[in-house]
Each structure stands twice: as structure tokens, then as C-alpha cells.
């Protein structure tokens, strides 16, 4: 019987959170590249406008779903961050702005 392997990373959650942030940063780059793809197709007129529209809308939906999937953990990270900041700083006095 093999002994259970010790986890390689002690702070798995923190690590996972950071990778989710990375994913959130990469997502728009990937999206931009994929949005530019029809430009290349146009050269050869391989696809009709209707097909390109279908492609773009599917891509759009995928981007929305990916963003939705990422938003929950990111929101949690944001909250934690804000709470930490709140604890660090004293509450700001309410004051008028011009």
C-alpha cells in the first residue's frame, strides 16, 4: 500500500485564487485574438457573413460564460481584499466633495 501523498502546496486555495486571477487577465487577450479571426477568413472569403455571424455570437456567448464562471471566485477575492483594506485603515470621515 502506498502512503498518501502529502500535498505539494500548503496553501492550495490561495494558489488557486491566483491562477483564477491569471485566467481573468488572459481571457480578454484570448477573446481579442479570436475576434480578429474573421479578418483572416475574409481574405479567402471562406465563410459567408451569416456563418461569420454565427461564429462571432458563439464566441461572444463563450466569453460571457467564461467571465461568469470566473466572476464568483474573483468577487470573493475582491471582498476579502476590501475587508483587509478596511481593517488596515481607519474609517474615512464623510465629507463633501466639490
Amino acid at each position: 500500500m502506498k502512503p498518501p501523498r502529502a500535498p505539494l502546496f500548503l496553501q492550495r486555495e490561495t494558489y488557486r485564487r491566483r491562477r483564477i486571477m491569471d485566467a481573468a487577465r488572459i481571457l480578454p487577450v484570448v477573446g481579442f485574438v479570436l475576434i480578429l479571426l474573421p479578418v483572416l477568413w475574409t481574405r479567402g472569403r471562406a465563410l459567408s457573413t451569416a456563418a461569420e455571424a454565427v461564429y462571432l455570437f458563439v464566441l461572444w456567448l463563450v466569453l460571457v460564460l467564461a467571465a461568469a464562471a470566473l466572476s464568483r471566485p474573483l468577487r470573493a477575492a475582491l471582498k476579502r481584499d476590501a475587508e483587509a483594506a478596511e481593517r488596515r485603515a481607519s474609517p474615512a470621515p464623510d465629507e463633501g466633495a466639490p
Binding site: 487577465r25 480578454p28 475576434i35 457573413t49 462571432l56 461572444w60 466569453l63
Partner: peptide, 21 residues
């Protein structure tokens, strides 16, 4: 101009999807 109108909405989509930046 065909599909070009979509650029006006795809640009903001990218900005929002990449809100973390």
C-alpha cells in the same frame, strides 16, 4: 457594412471580460 457593427459591442465586451486588468 455587414458585421462591422459588432465591433462597437465586442470592444466593450473585451474590456468588461478583462475587468480584472
Amino acid at each position: 457594412s455587414g458585421l462591422e457593427f459588432m465591433t462597437i459591442y465586442l470592444g466593450p465586451t473585451l474590456v468588461f471580460v478583462g475587468w480584472w486588468w
